[in-house]
Simulated assay, not measured.
Amino acid sequence: MVASSSASTNSDDRQAVEHIRGRSLPQEWPAAALAAGSRVAVVRDPHGDGRPWRNEFPGTIDDMGAPEPVENSHARAGELAYWVVFDGPQYDSYGDGPYRKALIWDRYLRPDPPLPGSTSNGPRSA
């Protein structure tokens, strides 16, 4: 029952985001990207005032949409943005929220080390 509820929420989220964007979310996963289900820490920007998040927190790469290139003049070459589900509600650096999921540039993600006896989270994009 929990799995179907989660799948239903993910489907509802995808439909809402696609409606707002006016296009479908990509579903083809880049080969060098973190895998869906990978555990990550969402980190603050060390070169600024800590934006975009108020604090560091854990989450999981979501399969709602495949990682996609960041189209912004401040993006690094080949930088990807991932949908991340947060372990608990989070506030951004402006105090807005709480958020339970967001599209996050990979510079703000740090793969969590695997637990002893488990496999690696896989390769990370450059």
Rank of each mutant, 00 (worst) to 15 (best):
G122Y: 06
D13G: 04
Y91M: 11
P69I: 00
V42Q: 05
P114D: 07
S8I: 10
P113Y: 04
V42L: 04
G122Q: 06
G88W: 11
Y99T: 05
M1Q: 06
F57C: 01
A41T: 13
S8H: 12
S73D: 12
R107H: 08
A75D: 15
R44Q: 15
I61G: 06
H74Y: 14
G97I: 12
L115H: 04
G117Y: 06
S120A: 10
P69A: 09
G78D: 11
T119R: 11
R54S: 11
D112K: 11
G48C: 14
R51F: 08
G122S: 10
V17D: 10
F57T: 01
Y94P: 00
G122R: 07
A126P: 11
V17E: 11
R54M: 14
S11T: 14
G78R: 02
R39T: 03
P113T: 00
R14W: 08
S73Y: 10
F86V: 00
G48E: 09
L115Y: 04
S93C: 07
D12W: 08
A35W: 13
S93Y: 01
S8D: 15
Y108L: 12
S4C: 02
L115I: 03
N10G: 05
G95R: 03
P111L: 06
E71T: 14
S73H: 13
A33M: 06
S4E: 10
V17N: 06
E18Q: 15
W29L: 01
Q15H: 14
V42S: 04
G117M: 08
P30A: 07
